[in-house]
Design a protein around this nucleic acid. Sequence first.
DNA 1: GACTCCATACCAACTGGTTGGTTTGTTATA
DNA 2: TATAACAAACCAACCAGTTGGTATGGAGTC
Lengths: 214, 214
Amino acid sequence: MTNATPVSHQLTPSPPRGQARRALLDAAIKLVRRQGWAATTVDELCSSAGVTKGAFFHHFPSKEALGVAAAKHWVEVIGPFFAEGGDTRLSDPLDRIFAYLDFRAEIAKAPLDVATCFAGTLVQEVFASSAPIRDACGATIRALVEPLTEDFRAAIESHGAPAGVTAESLAIYTHTVFQGGFVMAKAENDAAPLIDAIAQLKRYIALLFGRAHP
Amino acid sequence: MTNATPVSHQLTPSPPRGQARRALLDAAIKLVRRQGWAATTVDELCSSAGVTKGAFFHHFPSKEALGVAAAKHWVEVIGPFFAEGGDTRLSDPLDRIFAYLDFRAEIAKAPLDVATCFAGTLVQEVFASSAPIRDACGATIRALVEPLTEDFRAAIESHGAPAGVTAESLAIYTHTVFQGGFVMAKAENDAAPLIDAIAQLKRYIALLFGRAHP
DNA sequence: GACTCCATACCAACTGGTTGGTTTGTTATA
DNA sequence: TATAACAAACCAACCAGTTGGTATGGAGTC
């Protein structure tokens, strides 16, 4: 590809013994977010992780198996990070939701290849060609949606349910807007559509719950 | 002198002379939507289009150049299709917008590899590794957003502008929701999140313009 | 506490098949 | 008959995965 960003394949120092698997999963997240799944080779993953192919196929029977494991790894990495972002001290669940959305809008300002969702990028590419990876990404995204569902459930309990929506549908819709924002931001090579989408989502939620737009 | 009839082992009958380029672009849209960009090989594109590699590299200097051309081709294929879907006879622009959203929700019921957006799938994968393709996808998506911007502009003129939103931001947000819906539908291997997202988007627009939810 | 035993973790060279792209030649049409 | 539109064989680089090893550290024995 003509303008291929010179991906630095400089030799990463080898991870300490016992850390090769973890290093490979981290490398997968980093490289796949930047280049996609098929364009990321096993050799690249190995050199980025600082291990050899022998180590790779010791820990994973195939590249596909690494993809499945990386999708699971993604929840463990990013789930706690998101949880920490939302301010759990806020007593009003709607306040927590808005705080979470503000937090996500902050993250959106980071470079695109670190601000976007590993699972979304991966599943968009392999949904039809690898059922195991697709299902792992589905489970991952559901796991990321879940805590938000809890907040919406609490918000509906204390503020009343807006007509026609459920806590689950609102939580899923929220992540739908994130995923769409990632795609649009990549297309524009700019975070603006993502940040604006989150703002519109906040407006929607405010309107639904009859709250003044924050 | 007898000439042996060439037995065709191709998957697809060869297109008539002069149609190879078009056949390759159509094949690109079909295959990339299903398997992604990097996983789609030039050989596959050729056999799906019913031409040889000679024809491929006669029409395109590289695989990347085909990607750029396919992004442009996508507007020409899907743009008119969308335009025909929205009912232009409706005099109220807001009615036209809702009709368009209903149309998109109908399309969403098709199998995922034909219901989703070629440009979105492509740019998600190559945004960092091919600037030409990324920019072509950006232009394509802007071209698809544009007619909707016109409708929102007319809606704002006749119904008044809701606070804090513009015609352009609403049109972009609409396509953001589509793109996000595609990703979520792929992750769940089911159109439900996409269809529900469109329903929530309709609710948002109805709330914004103070219209009873259709 | 030195000593064997052994599973796990890792390494590096190699393989058969595939990749994007090239070369050279053929056919239709203006 | 000049030129665009193809076809087919070919190539060097690259790909996922394999092979046959070596290093490490912990458990068991004396």
